[in-house]
Computed example of a mutant assay.
Amino acid sequence: MLCGVHNHDLAPNLSGHLLAGRLRGEEKQRVIDMTKSLAKHRNILTDLKEKNKESVTLI
């Protein structure tokens, strides 16, 4: 930031952004449950994205 103004445009896609990629409480619990069930990481991510179409969470 320079003088209180951003020196770049807002990214069109927030994929990979730390705040945008955070999991909500119920999503965290879903990850815990699926991990205990020995689900593969890609299957967990696919499940999260199916339940929340706006999710930009990455592995």
Rank of each mutant, 00 (worst) to 15 (best):
D9L: 13
E54L: 05
R30Q: 09
H6C: 14
E50V: 03
N13L: 15
T57P: 01
K53C: 07
K40Y: 09
V56W: 03
D9I: 14
T57N: 08
K51R: 12
A39V: 00
K51G: 13
N43P: 00
T46W: 04
P12K: 04
K49T: 09
N52Y: 04
G25L: 12
N43I: 02
A39Y: 11
E27A: 06
L10D: 11
L18W: 07
L58R: 15
T46Q: 15
K51D: 04
S37D: 13
I44N: 01
P12T: 12
E27I: 00
G16H: 02
V56Q: 06
A11C: 09
S37P: 00
E26Q: 15
L38H: 10
A11R: 14
N52G: 03
K53L: 11
P12Y: 12
S15A: 11
A20M: 03
C3M: 07
G4Y: 08
L23R: 05
H41R: 08
N52S: 09
K36C: 09
I44S: 00
K51E: 03
I32R: 08
L18M: 14
H6R: 10
K36D: 08
N52E: 10
K51A: 02
T57E: 00
V31W: 01
R24A: 15
L45Q: 02
A20F: 04
I44A: 02
L10Y: 11
L58T: 14
T35E: 08
T57Q: 01
L23Q: 02
L2N: 06
L48G: 03
T46H: 02
G25F: 13
Q29G: 06
N7C: 13
K53D: 13
R22I: 04
K36I: 09
L23Y: 03
L14R: 13
I44K: 00
L2V: 13
I44M: 04
E27S: 09
D47K: 05
G4N: 12
L58E: 15
R22C: 07
K40W: 01
V31T: 03
E26C: 04
I59Q: 14
E54I: 06
I32T: 10
L14Q: 10
L45H: 03
N52M: 02
N7W: 07
I59M: 08
L19T: 13
H41L: 10
E27Y: 02
H8S: 14
E26L: 01
G21T: 02
I44Q: 00
K49Q: 14
T35R: 10
G21L: 04
D47T: 05
L10C: 05
H6T: 06
I32C: 10
M1S: 14
K40H: 12
M34S: 08
K36N: 07
P12V: 01
G16V: 01
S55T: 05
L23G: 02
L10H: 15
V31Q: 00
D47N: 06
H41D: 10
T57C: 14
M34R: 13
V5E: 14
G21P: 01
N43W: 04
L19H: 11
E50K: 15
I44W: 00
E27K: 02
